[in-house]
């Protein structure tokens, strides 16, 4: 019952704030004109498609690389551990825009790659992997050492222990931060316009430049980003609640 009234209150506040925002924009002296933006709707949709595909491709790459990094950071070999540490430090210690520029102007000509999509998603995936590796590592390390020992004492091999005891417990705890990372990556992908990838940000810039309706062009793109990120964030919160409940007993995923 308490939950229901809380949801109602949240909804009311959200609607009030949005209404106030729209009212404030409308009553200003600025003359609104969303027709140019509407004219370019196909460009927006193309941009949206590119944003989604670049984000998902980068997420996939980040996921695989991230697991490798997490494994490397927990390796028994010092050299392997250190290499992974170095990777994480270098990537997390520099802005993505700088990394993207280095890849685009430095590595791409060297490696003779000219697909902007490939370059952009690789750069973004490499960036994401550093963060996702930390999520995986924290998730695996959150499973108590005693769980590992209990499984081994029953005769399970190392691999069986990881697969049937450690990963299932770790993965549940990683779902919320992994969803958060997907949201962050969706937004981060807007920087790919910088190398000329025709994603949503590029669409907005194009519309703004051609119609001089920059304000409207970017309000539209902001709304488009929100239609991706808000549902994801609601989903993450829902999962977190359900998982919290199952940790205390009952309710499987």
């Amino acid at each position: 019952m308490k939950r229901r009234s809380e949801i109602a209150l949240r909804a009311a506040i959200t609607v009030a704030v949005l209404a106030a925002l729209v009212a404030a924009l409308w009553s200003s002296e600025y003359e609104w004109d969303f027709r140019p933006a509407w004219m370019y709707r196909k460009l927006y949709l193309k941009g949206l498609g590119m944003t989604l595909s670049a984000t998902l491709a980068a997420y996939g790459l980040g996921f695989v690389l991230g697991i490798a990094i997490a494994m490397a950071r927990m390796s028994r070999r010092l050299a392997v551990r250190h290499l992974a540490d170095l990777y994480v430090e270098l990537i997390r210690g520099t802005p993505f825009l700088v990394q993207l520029t280095i890849v685009y102007f430095g590595l791409a000509p060297l490696l003779r790659i000219d697909s902007k999509f490939l370059l952009g998603t690789c750069a973004l995936g490499i960036f994401a992997a550093a963060y996702m590796g930390e999520i995986f590592r924290a998730g695996i390390e959150s499973v108590q050492r005693g769980q590992f020992e209990a499984a081994r004492s029953l005769g399970l091999s190392r691999g069986q222990t990881l697969r049937h005891v450690v990963f299932p417990q770790a993965f549940r705890r990683m779902i919320p931060p992994l969803t958060g990372e997907l949201i962050a990556l969706t937004k981060e992908s807007s920087l790919l316009f910088f190398i000329g990838l025709a994603e949503m940000m590029a669409s907005a810039r194009h519309v703004g430049a051609n119609t001089y309706r920059t304000f409207e062009a970017f309000l539209v793109v902001a709304c488009l980003y929100l239609t991706i990120t808000v549902p994801l964030s609601l989903l993450a919160r829902r999962l977190e609640r359900r998982l919290g409940r199952s940790d205390r007993g009952g309710v499987a995923l």
Binding site: Q144, G146, Q147, E149, A150, A151, R152, S153, L154, G155, L156, H164, V165, P168, Q169, R172, S246, D247
Partner: peptide, 26 residues
């Protein structure tokens, strides 16, 4: 290890499995 059973101070049951699944896993 499979031949020697071990019982721990802090139980170490697998929280993501039901009681029956805890027994049938190994």
């Amino acid at each position: 290890r499979a031949e020697v059973g071990m019982v721990f101070q802090h139980f170490q049951l697998f929280p993501h499995l039901t009681v029956t699944q805890n027994l049938t896993l190994a």
